[in-house]
């Protein structure tokens, strides 16, 4: 595992460290398991935090406010397109995941950050607005459904879950996805076409740069003073059950857990 510190901690203040996992394409099953682990760890050490930044294989997730009616293709069409449909226990509704999006899932203690769940959702919207400002784009939080709009079109969705006072899931931002498939999926029930950073800017919108900016903005907004970057998910266990080289043990993988 590689890690590097981007900023220096403030010696006199308690150090708040943010682990940032920049994972590239990351499957949903793996995400669910990693989120569960990070939520558990942050609940035990609320002065720390984590953020997963990745993109997902093409597919659809349906949050608690979603409905199958927002997915226009039938089961056969979805199978041909290779889009799985997964029901997840986050807020917001239907989301279509495509290459060219950036998914950003902060895992932080809301009590430690002094935020209510609703305020946390608003802070995520503010993160996206601030990021888009760096692209000279004027965006606004969506007053109807949590997310961010540029003009009349949505560019980002917010859908989170708060478990044991710790956040998971987060925001999906369209950097440069193919916007055509969104015609068939009413994300968050919104029939209006989507937009992307690339569509709105004359320059080149790079996914890698957006990932880095998101991590910096998350750290700044939630008052983390140190960022540790990782490009792989954590191993199966932070501590081996037996010292390496000893007999009678070794790394053991946890039994797969049920997703919900």
């Amino acid at each position: 595992m590689t890690a590097s510190d981007l900023t220096h901690s403030v010696p006199s203040a308690p150090c708040r460290g943010l682990r940032a996992y920049l994972l590239g394409q990351f499957g949903f099953d793996a995400l669910i398991g990693l989120q569960r682990r990070l939520v558990y760890e942050v609940a035990g050490e609320p002065n720390t935090g984590a953020v997963i930044v990745c993109d997902h294989p093409s597919g659809i997730t349906v949050g608690r406010e979603g409905s199958r009616i927002h997915v226009r293709p039938g089961p056969e069409e979805l199978r041909i397109r290779g889009w799985s449909v997964r029901w997840v226990s986050r807020g917001s509704g239907v989301l279509l995941h495509l290459p060219g999006q950036v998914a950003c899932y902060p895992v932080i203690s809301l009590a430690q950050a002094g935020l209510t769940p609703a305020r946390y959702v608003a802070e995520l919207e503010a993160v996206v607005v601030e990021l888009l400002r760096e692209f000279d784009l004027r965006a606004e939080p969506d007053p109807a459904t949590p997310g961010v709009r540029i003009g009349s079109r949505r560019v980002a969705h917010i859908g989170v879950a708060i478990r044991g006072g710790v956040s998971c899931f987060g925001l999906i931002l369209n950097v440069d996805p193919d916007l055509e498939p969104f015609r068939d999926i009413h994300c968050d029930g919104d029939p209006m076409p989507m937009t992307s950073i690339q569509r709105e800017t004359p320059g080149r919108a790079r996914v890698a740069a957006v990932r880095q900016q998101l991590v910096s903005l998350i750290a700044g907004r939630f008052a983390f003073d140190r960022i540790s970057l990782f490009h792989t998910p954590p191993g199966p266990s932070l501590r081996p059950p037996f010292p390496p080289g000893s007999s009678g043990g070794g790394w053991k993988h946890a039994a797969p857990t049920r997703t919900r």
Binding site: E65, R90, G91, P117, A118, G147, V160, A161, I162
Partner: peptide
Amino acid sequence: AGDRVAEVLIPGATVDVP
């Protein structure tokens, strides 16, 4: 104590109740 027993939905978020 601390088990999630219910879930509440607010705009954009689900919140576990312990």
